[in-house]
Design a binder for these strands. Structure first.
Length: 744
DNA sequence: TCCAACTTACCTTAACGTCG
DNA sequence: CGACGTTAAGGTAAGTTGGA
């Protein structure tokens, strides 16, 4: 490699070998012609011939070569005579030894030096006007057919390198024999007859899908194409390869080589082509896009991707059944499943006889791996024993209430208030890291999922059962359990937790109720224990409750109605307040909440504008502890149950402690003519049915979730007046964010 | 190393759905 | 009604395998 950096001129001017290891140190000195002995005047007759120089010696040798061997070409051909296999070696020992030593690099001058000398020799380059001038690096003309040395050498090297690159890409199309986990050739499908065919599964598809892993593999197993593509793709600085921050060339090399590999062998799709094709399917890429990427060799064909997905499902289900069976064998239930209904309305747009619009109804489910479970957690007998004890009688709203760690929730809420402030105020940006660290601290984290935990899931096949019908739900559950390999025998002595939304859970409990008289635990569904509605579903019903209670009419007069906030923020008011879209509604509510929190902060700083307050602030900025302490007070004052009571009662408000006193502002005047406003509001009331509902609900606090216990519904007026022992809690109230204590 | 049989991927075709 | 999109079927090309 070093020779690339050597100045070829050194070799022209230094025919004699230099001492070992000092190639660079010796300065290039011009060769001065040495006068021949005959020209030197002498007075004394010499006894020995004067010592010849190298130039003289080579002159003599060349004379012999020319005379006896017919020229340099023939001499070199004889010198490097390649004995055909099976023939006798006619060379003398001296001949053999010298050539062996030279070709083996045992001499001071090695072949590499000679190549440089020949390649860079002035006479090796064809003159400008000759045809051979254009044959440099030619792969079409054989190097043996060329006259000049330089094009012959470059063409020979090109063909040699191309051959090797081709061979190495060819090697890359096969599984690495030294690596048993290598899945270069991963089949999308197989009928099982092909020996050792590796069929795709999710693990194999994803475990090698890493650019850095592929780069390592390509550079190790295909060093020549790797070097070539690096030279072609990498930017350089002062001759050295630079890895760019954006669009690094290694990724491009991986992409290019993956395409080359697929082009050579379409079975070699395991690196990039198969995962990318599956990804394109998942992205619902346009069919033309898939075709084009397939033509470029970036991905396999769409039909292969579909075959692969079939294989993934088959192998996935097979693995699921295996894992379930392994658990059952040691008396453990390692999986649970969550189900929901799926519907698709298929309208017949092309009307023909005997066709009509249909609603396709069915049930879909996903199996979920349970991790970190206590041994015996899914033991049926233990569960039945506990049910028999009827301890549930002891559980009341109060006991649940007392189970809540209110101090923790208060602390966490206050920290959220700090977070809202420091993310909004640029001058407090330096505290953001500290706030994040506080959220991650041991004190503020309760029962977190382990970092890097990825829940293992396996989709189950859908069926055409109606989950709303009790019998349909029963058949659906039996079908999903069967897919998981759970029959009566496997379920013996174990419980499983089927999960779903409110309606699904209700249907499951209904099944258990109707079948409760059956003696078999399995047939009575006693070993199916639904844990309660999914959290995402309860969040959604809660969001519906807040929406229908707090949005108010579209033109609400109440400045605290969410409709007002929505108008101010330019957010969309949900069309159906009882069935809101989860994300847009929750995002707008978070936005309103954070805006109001910032306003509370503004009041606490005594500022008219919080941004101006901080940009013109000359005193030292508060640290995290100060802000957190202030936030605790603010949360108590503005966002606790006690604050809510205070806002409703003048007496409470007046007798509040210093910390809880809300500073009085100026009285509010309507910005527009109140009469005109009233008229507009009335108009809207006539147009919108649900607005009347909204008004009524905002005053009575109706829980729209039909599964919520009825006793929780209470009168807000009563909530305001009643006092309980829990109101003496330090942070200002029992419910905090929780429900009222109206049952006291 | 070659060849035939077999396997697997590619790609066109066509049926049918969707949309303006 | 025409254009376009999705999807599965099936023919064909191109690999692999195993034996001579």
């Amino acid at each position: 490699m070093e020779f690339h950096h050597l100045d070829p001129k050194e070799f022209y001017s230094k025919p004699t070998p230099r001492p070992k290891g000092s190639r660079r140190a010796v300065p290039a000195t011009p060769v001065t012609p040495i006068p021949l002995p005959a020209l030197v005047p002498s007075t004394q007759e010499r006894l020995r011939a004067p010592r010849r120089t190298d130039w003289e010696k080579i002159h003599d040798i060349l004379g012999v070569i020319s005379k006896d061997l017919g020229g340099l070409g023939n001499f070199l051909k004889l010198l490097f005579y390649l004995r055909p296999h099976g023939t006798k070696d006619v060379r003398t020992n001296r001949h053999k030894t010298m050539v062996t030593q030279f070709l083996g690099g045992k001499t001071n001058v090695k072949m590499g030096h000679i190549i440089d000398l020949i390649y860079n020799h002035r006479q090796s380059q064809p003159p400008t006007n000759t045809e051979e001038r254009h044959l440099a690096f030619s792969h079409q003309t054989l190097h043996t057919d060329m006259c000049f040395a330089r094009p012959a050498l470059s063409s020979w090297a090109l063909v040699l390198v191309a051959k090797e690159a081709r061979k190495q890409i060819g090697d890359l199309t096969n599984n690495d024999p030294t690596d048993p986990t290598d899945t270069t050739q991963m089949r999308a499908s197989s009928n099982g007859r092909a020996k050792d065919a590796v069929v795709a599964d999710w693990e194999k598809l994803t475990e090698n899908l890493s650019i850095s892993k592929m780069a390592a593999k390509y550079s190790r197993r295909g060093s020549v194409p790797w070097y070539l593509t690096e030279m072609m793709s990498a930017p350089t600085k002062g001759g050295a390869v630079v890895v760019r921050q954006r669009r690094p060339h290694t990724t491009i090399q991986v992409g290019a080589i993956s395409s080359f590999v697929l082009s050579r062998n379409r079975y070699a799709s395991g690196y990039l082509a198969l995962p990318l094709a599956v990804w394109q399917f998942a992205c619902k890429s346009h069919v033309d896009e898939k075709r084009i990427f397939s033509r470029f060799g970036f991905t396999v064909h769409d039909s292969t991707a579909r075959a692969c997905l079939d294989a993934l499902t088959d192998t996935g289900l097979e693995k699921l059944r295996q894992s379930v069976a392994e658990g059952v064998a040691v008396g453990e239930m390692r999986w649970q499943y969550v189900l929901d209904n799926v519907q698709k309305f298929c309208r017949q747009r092309d009307l023909r006889l005997g066709r009509q619009d249909i609603l396709k109804v069915g049930c879909a489910a996903t199996a979920i791996l349970l991790e970190d479970c206590a041994p015996g957690a899914f033991d049926l007998q233990d569960h039945l024993d506990r049910v028999m004890k009827q301890e549930r009688k002891e559980m009341t709203t109060e006991t649940l209430f007392d189970d809540i760690d209110w101090d923790y929730i208060h602390e966490l809420t206050a920290l959220h208030w700090v977070r809202i402030l420091v993310t909004f105020i640029p001058q407090l940006a330096h505290l953001r890291k500290a706030v994040e660290a506080a959220f991650n601290s041991d004190r503020m984290t309760k029962h977190r999922l382990p970092r890097n935990r990825k829940t293992v899931v396996q989709p189950l096949g859908t069926n055409a059962e109606r989950e709303t019908e009790t019998q349909g739900m029963m058949r659906a559950m039996l079908d999903f359990e069967k897919q998981m390999g759970l029959d009566e025998k496997a379920m013996e002595g174990l419980i499983i937790t089927p999960r779903g939304d409110g309606a699904s859970i209700a249907a499951m409990w209904r099944i258990k109720k109707y079948l409760s008289a059956h003696p078999s635990h399995y047939k009575a569904f006693r070993n199916r224990v639904p844990p309660g509605p999914e959290i995402w579903h309860t969040r959604w019903t809660k969001l519906n409750a807040i929406s229908s209670n707090c949005f108010g009419p579209a033109t609400a007069k109440d400045p605290f109605a969410l409709s007002k906030s929505a108008t101010a923020a330019g957010a969309k008011r949900p069309g159906d307040l009882k069935k809101v879209d989860f994300w847009p509604t929750s995002r707008s509510m978070i936005l309103f909440f954070e805006a109001r929190v910032l306003d509370c902060w503004r009041i606490s700083f005594g500022a008219d504008d919080i941004i101006t307050h901080f940009s013109t602030c000359t005193s030292t900025l508060p640290d995290l502890d100060t802000l957190w302490a202030n936030a605790r007070t603010l949360v108590r004052r503005y966002a606790s149950q006690q604050a809510y009571h205070q806002a409703l009662s003048r007496d409470f408000s007046d007798s509040a402690s210093e910390d809880m006193k809300v500073p009085r502002g100026t009285s509010w005047t309507a910005p527009i003519d109140p009469n005109a406003h009233h008229e507009r509001a009335t108009e809207n009331l006539l147009e919108l049915d649900e607005t009347a509902d909204g008004v009524a609900q905002s005053e009575t606090f109706v829980e729209p979730d039909e599964e919520a216990p009825e006793e929780n519904i209470s009168d807000s007026d009563e909530m305001g007046r009643k006092k309980s022992k829990k109101q003496s809690r330090p942070y200002g109230g029992p419910g905090f964010f929780g429900r009222s204590n109206s049952r006291k």
